[in-house]
Design a protein around this nucleic acid. Sequence first.
DNA 1: ATGGCGAATGCAATTCGA
Length: 264
Amino acid sequence: MKIATWNVNSIRSRLTHLQAWLTDNTVDVLCLQETKVVDADFPRQALEEMGYICTFSGQKSYNGVAILTRQPLENVWIGFTPLLGPGPAATFDEQKRVIAGIYQGVMVINLYVPNGSAIGSEKYDYKLAWFGQLKQYLQAFQAQGYSDFCLCGDFNIALEDRDIYDPKGKETHIMASPVERQALQGILDLGLQDVFRHFNSEPGHFSWWDYRTGGFQRNRGWRIDHIYLTPGLLAQAKSCLIDKAPRAWEKPSDHTPVVLELED
DNA sequence: ATGGCGAATGCAATTCGA
């Protein structure tokens, strides 16, 4: 089974890229972020014609997540509220950043973590508070007996210096500050491991390159799109690769797919 | 230190992303 994650930066702008990539990469599950489209306008038909079932949660202009699957998801949770109930979860769910389901026995949780804008900003505080909500959400899954899961998506955090082309000044940079890294580590402490790092310890492997300053051409990137697994699933992992190819296509997303292969 | 680029909205210029 192959599970992939890709921030497409608008699914409508990237539809031909998505179709081309799926033609060459027959993944079983594709987690998408930043679809930037309300549910009524999600390009469901074009993707169904390619053999994918679409499960999505979107909003106007911003955010939006989706899971494309070859077979139906057996369970679907949209947002935090199905597990955590109304209250703070409902407020966080105004931004469509969380979608989860079970695919052939594998629980897949797809996230678009808030960017945070700048350290100390209102959005930065929101990002940190969002991690608190995420921790409660994952603990609620665990309390219900879902001990194994795949947690993937755009985390907007590079956890280690080897995940950044140049870590100079990272302490004051959004996506690399110590407080952000601690917030993400607090999630991993629930029992998750970075499957890309399970196979590859080298620096220089990135999933996002800034559109500006020719970042991709010079490989000035960041590894901020992650696939995390609990031990039971990690034992089934065969490979985890970043596919840089779509980032080189014309009018690309600024992110590129990360692909996990599990033993069947 | 700043802005660079790209998408959405909506039709010009602004907001947001990372």
